[in-house]
Design a protein around this nucleic acid. Structure first.
Lengths: 217, 217
DNA sequence: TCTTTAATTCATCATTTGATGAGTATGGTA
DNA sequence: TACCATACTCATCAAATGATGAATTAAAGA
């Protein structure tokens, strides 16, 4: 019979499981609404391990974010331009491929950003996610503006907003709403969504590809 | 000197102030994250009054939602068609005019819908907001589909999704993001946003107004 | 005026929360 | 083998939370 107490035999993935549980739970509920006991239960682990590995609940939160965002950041920072397509379709595909590995993250980020700005989780998130925002903004700007095809009269900032709305909303919308649209956001569906969004933006924000620039005001 | 305890002289708006506090706080934090003491402090009122007027914290939540959504529902239910324009601009203007009175509501709704679906606040919200969703869907369907101008190849459900993304995202996006776009969502700005969104959808989803229908497949 | 009802404060309770320290067993190393 | 760091469990604490009932005062009605 195995001992209840003391170090368990063999290897264990308690730490990993806590990180996974944190992503799962913080992805769907706000920081304060998730209890350490819940996290431990979800991970199948004693609650005191949170302190052991991460110092505190906030420590677990921070470490989880770090491990989720780091790969994303590395990919965005590398940006040898070549790897970052400058056409809308390529932009959206790359974007979704960066986000796809952890579908809980967008909801988590948006929820935390909405919490009172003075709060600790907010500061932690901003430290890590601020750079993601900045790099994305830069990249998006390149695609939208440098293409030189924005329809005259279309404010660049509003174009950014539209792009973000079309891309982000489906990722953060509550399931009840998503279901109402008769769609599901699994990998199968993504290409369809991307194609649709590209169409909307191509015709909605840009001049026809072959348009003569001299027709501008 | 006024007595600390007992019924206060003259009229008081304690009940009203609690409702207002509830909208303000539940608008920015999740249900469990807002304490009765916080609500009371925000309203400048003793916490026991929550029980007195609403039975419980959940009762206050429900009553607040009821009072916020009822006017909205009445307006949507009336729908003498005439009052509900069938052009995109009119649709968006009416929509925003319905939402404008309480800018906290969209965030609140989306947050509650995202919380675990088994929860009490969720059920309460769905009872009231379900009808809002259904009526909006109906109305939107009329405008999008019955116009007969959807570009061929554009899935109606995706058109709905795009519309909702463009309309709702700006209302629920965290302030940090909104600021990043260099815009603010006050009344001054709404017309600009509406005009932009109409443009995007007109050109992105619809056939040119004067298009000859015979060019369709 | 007397009595009942309405509106409020206050002290307090059981429960849940995050954190903590003491204790226990395993693994690697000298 | 002796030893110490590693990986865990468990009981428990102080703080915060929602709820509650008793007490207090004002207003309204008879």
């Amino acid at each position: 019979m195995s001992a209840k107490t003391g170090r368990p035999k063999g290897d264990s993935d308690a730490r990993q499981r806590l990180i996974a549980a944190a992503l799962a739970l913080f992805g769907n509920q706000s920081f304060n609404n998730v209890s350490t006991r819940q996290l431990a239960r979800e991970a199948g682990v004693d609650a005191a391990l949170i302190r052991y590995y991460f110092g505190s609940k906030l420590g677990l939160f921070e470490q989880m974010l770090r491990e989720m965002l780091e790969p994303m950041l590395e990919r965005l920072r590398a940006q040898p331009q070549a790897a970052f397509p400058s056409d809308l379709t390529g932009l959206m595909q790359t974007y979704y491929s960066i986000m796809a590995p952890n579908p809980n993250l967008p909801r988590l980020v948006v929820r935390v950003l909405q919490e009172d700005e003075g709060t600790e989780p907010f500061r932690i998130l901003m430290t890590l996610f601020g750079e993601v925002m900045a790099l994305s903004r830069q990249w998006l700007g390149k695609v939208l503006l440098n293409s030189g095809r924005l329809r005259p009269g279309v404010e660049p900032e509003l174009a950014r907003l539209s792009f973000t709305s079309l891309m982000v909303f489906p990722l953060i919308a509550p399931q009840v709403l998503i279901r109402q649209f008769g769609i599901s956001l699994d990998a199968d569906f993504l290409p369809t969504l991307i194609q649709h969004n590209v169409q909307v933006m191509e015709k909605g924000l840009f001049l026809p590809e072959d348009a003569d620039m001299r027709t501008l005001s």
